[in-house]
Design a protein around this nucleic acid. Structure first.
Length: 259
DNA sequence: ATGCCGGGTACGACCCGA
């Protein structure tokens, strides 16, 4: 099974390249972030025509997440527990049947957190703390669990073209990294780092010729429970998509699994 | 390092992203 994550930065603007990529790649499951759409306006028909089931957790203007799946949903969960006042749509989870059991796919759009002297940074840190509590419960299920999406977090210096330039940013500073480590130390495997020790990026800014200079960062991740990591066959970063017309600043990242 | 780029809302100009 091939399971991908892609921050598409606006479903309305990206529908043509999303359809092109789905036709070319035919992943089993794709999770999307920053759909920037309410559920009612999500362009379902052309995606459904390609065979995909769709579940969304949208929001007007910004944020918003979705899951597209060739396999029917057994369950869907929306929103990150732990703060009833949080109205931002940043998490949607689906459960799917596979041979011998179920897999659980949790799509997140983790808050950016900049600027760090604003309320956005403590919101990011609180969101990460809530996520860690949530994931702890999921791991207790001892089933294949894939936590993937836009984490807005640079795990290590190798994951930035120019790490010194990012140090202190909400994506790459001690408070954020400590929480990312607390999350992974629950027992999650970073899929990309399980298959390569080479630099690899998933985001290149629209500005300052970042793509042309390969001034990228790796912030889109697949984190795997032991039961999912045991079945990992490979990871593909679809970097060519960054060169397409009317593309997102993120590219799809795909994990291949033996289920 | 920054919002220079780019989407969204809404139709001027600001919010948001990383």
């Amino acid at each position: 099974m091939r399971i991908a994550t892609w921050n598409i930065n606006g479903i309305k603007a990206r529908l043509p390249i999303l359809l092109q990529w789905l036709r070319e790649t035919k992943p089993d499951i794709v999770v999307l972030q920053e759909i920037k759409s309410v559920d009612e306006n999500f362009p379902r028909l052309e995606i459904e025509d390609l065979g995909y089931n769709i579940e969304t957790h949208g929001q007007k203007g910004w944020n918003g997440v979705a899951i597209l799946s060739l396999h029917p949903f057994d369950e869907v969960h929306r929103g990150l527990p732990g703060d009833d006042s949080d109205e931002q749509s940043r998490l949607i989870e689906g459960v799917f049947s596979v041979e011998g059991g179920a897999i659980r796919v949790c799509n997140i759009y983790l808050p950016n957190g900049n600027p760090v002297d604003s309320e956005k940074f403590p919101y990011k840190l609180g969101w990460m703390d809530r996520l860690t509590s949530f994931v702890e419960g999921r791991l207790a299920l001892e089933e294949p669990f894939i936590l993937l999406g836009d984490f807005n977090l640079i795990p290590a210096p190798i994951d930035a073209h120019n790490p010194e330039a990012w140090w202190g940013d909400a994506l790459y500073r001690p408070e954020s990294l400590a929480r990312f480590r607390a999350l992974t130390h629950l027992g999650l495997t970073d899929a990309l780092r399980a298959v390569t020790d080479q630099p690899a990026y998933t985001f290149w800014d629209f500005q300052a010729g970042a793509w042309r200079r390969n001034a990228g960062i790796r912030i889109d991740h697949l984190l795997l429970s032991p039961q999912a990591a045991d079945r990992l066959d490979g990871v593909t970063i679809h970097q060519d998509v960054r060169g397409w017309d009317k593309t997102s600043d993120h590219v799809p990242v795909e994990g291949d699994f033996a289920f």
